[in-house]
Amino acid sequence: MSRPEDTLPPDLFYNDRESQKYTTSSRIQTIQTSMAQRALSLLSLPHPSLILDVGCGSGLSGEALTASEHTWIGMDISASMLAIALDRETAGDLFLADIGQGVPFRPGTFDAAISISAIQWLCNADSSHVSATGRLARFFEGLYASLKRGGKAVLQFYPKNEVQRSMITGAAIRAGFGAGLLEDDPGTKNVKVYLVLTVGAGAEEGGAEDVTNVVRGLEGVDVIDERRKGRGGGRGGEDKKGSKGWILRKKEQGRNKGKVVKADSKYTGRKRRPAF
């Protein structure tokens, strides 16, 4: 199936026909609602909050927010989608805005932000005077500023490939977020990727707020922390040239090739004493 991101820019792709199709499909309704509820559970907001819905579309995700008694403000680039949101009488305030142009809100406005299936659109630049990295940077900088300290954002997106995934995550980290990826149903066709972002230390909850803390209480979540690996390993887990491990590996290679190799001993790879 072709990706809609590759065919047209979002404001043109979601025309009246496409928006109507999207919103009335009971399959999409179910998926969107369940993803919004998942995002909301990841946010774990203690009281009624003000939430930014990025790429709110026709308000499918917003209805899940309204059901949990939160107030939300939605942004979307497609006028047709917003028109449907108006017909559906969604509770949130709506804005016609391009998230790649920044987030036009005062710093520290929102308790949290969610986004369902929207930010992969940022990876496509539609004209020559904008770039995908520039649009991503604009968006994440704006989002970072508009969230209050200790705020969280859960952004579900469909990365096309590994490049897009690292591009989006990298842009979020560069903007100052603490970022982590949560994958539901990894390795299947139904894989759902959630980018979980945190702003600063969670002052309200006390103690360092981290993505791993966010998902700690959830069932069936395996935490793969790649930070430790990155710090300890040096160059991607390979032995440094000249180290004992490297020498042993090279000797093993030679032995496999049938060369005459000296036996390993406790002296292998040791430094000689400096001659005086």
Partner: peptide, 26 residues
């Protein structure tokens, strides 16, 4: 029923004053 388009007779939509307290120039 959820697949049916909603009737167009809805009250005019609007924006809360609360929201304008958060808005800046883009």
């Amino acid at each position: 029923p959820t697949n049916l388009p909603l009737p167009p007779t809805t009250p005019p939509p609007k924006m809360k004053i609360l929201t304008t307290n958060y808005l800046t120039c883009a």
